[in-house]
Computed example of a mutant assay.
Amino acid sequence: MPVLHLGATVLCMHAGSALPTMPFPRVSVSAQPVVQVTTPYVIAGCSLSTSSGPFCASGQWVIGATRVLAGGLPLAIVGGTALCIATGTGMQAVASQTRVLAT
């Protein structure tokens, strides 16, 4: 599975754009820092934000690479599992670099 980096396009399930807040700067792919599973994401533009209930404002990868680490932590990968904090729905990577793979 491709490794996620700062420039990867990640969306919540309601089409909100998710950006990592603290990518790991010591390892780069496609000239951009990688994202560890513990990196929190901030989400903007969730379509649920206009409703009175909870909406996706932040998220985090919970399952990532099992064999590739950066700084002692697993990397976030396209095939991993991520959750939005308030709603419990997922996030998905829709575009990422394809040269570096991790399992």
Rank of each mutant, 00 (worst) to 15 (best):
T50D: 13
T89G: 00
S58R: 11
Q60K: 15
A57H: 08
G80P: 06
S96Q: 08
M91T: 02
G64K: 10
A95C: 06
I85E: 06
G64Q: 11
G88P: 01
G71L: 11
L73H: 14
G90E: 01
G71P: 08
Q97D: 07
G72R: 10
G79C: 08
T89Y: 04
L83R: 11
Q60R: 15
G72N: 11
W61H: 09
A65R: 05
Q92V: 08
V78N: 03
A70C: 14
P54I: 05
T87D: 01
F55W: 07
A57Q: 12
W61D: 07
Q92T: 09
G90N: 02
A86F: 01
S51Q: 13
G53H: 10
L73S: 15
V78P: 04
G80K: 05
A76V: 09
G80C: 05
T66M: 06
S52H: 12
G72Y: 09
A70I: 13
Q97M: 05
W61S: 12
A82Y: 05
I77M: 01
L69A: 11
A93P: 03
P54A: 11
T50I: 15
C84F: 04
S58V: 01
Q60H: 04
A93S: 08
T50R: 15
V94C: 06
S52C: 13
A93Q: 02
C84E: 02
G71D: 05
A95L: 08
S52G: 14
T89H: 05
T66C: 04
A86Y: 02
P54Y: 06
A65E: 03
G79M: 10
A93R: 02
S52D: 13
S51Y: 11
I85T: 14
A76M: 08
T66K: 11
G53W: 07
